[in-house]
Amino acid sequence: MFLKEYLSDIYHATKSLLTGMKRTGYYFVHPKEIITEQYPDNRETLKMADRFRGEVIMPHDANNEHACTGCTACELACPNATIKIITKFDVTPEGKKKKALDTFVYHLELCTMCNLCVEACPTDAIKMGQNFEHSVYDRSMLLKKLNKPGSKIREGVE
């Protein structure tokens, strides 16, 4: 009786192990079904999803114009004080003073990619970019100015 149990234990143990090994063996001879991506080698073909949140960017059009009015809504929405808006006063042709964006300071090292600033912006001036390769040798290189030098606000954006 004992011997029978003992042998059946061995049988079941071997069977369960072989079932597992069969699974592993299957993938060994079917390398096509392996889905691992070789990251740094596939950089040319790697495409992130459109909505992937890698960093905050400010799109500029061909005339070097952006849509930011300097309203600081994004600065207020940000939970980590990542954004600092520095404004200046432009003089309009009619001779009136008008608030405008001077510098959009963006601390990439503080940003958590939460998307709240993009949600808050009334003029869709900023959006999330797909670049995720942010490592640099010095932390100060992560401090960015998002508006390009010499850029100004697009005509008609209020």
């Binding site: 992130m48 999803a49 459109d50 909505r51 992937f52 949140r53 958590t112 990619m113 939460c114 998307n115 709240l116 999330m128």
Partner: peptide, 12 residues
């Protein structure tokens, strides 16, 4: 998740 929410773990 990445496609719809924009992030893989901390979606917000």
């Amino acid at each position: 998740m990445e496609q719809t929410c924009g992030a893989r773990l901390t979606m917000n």
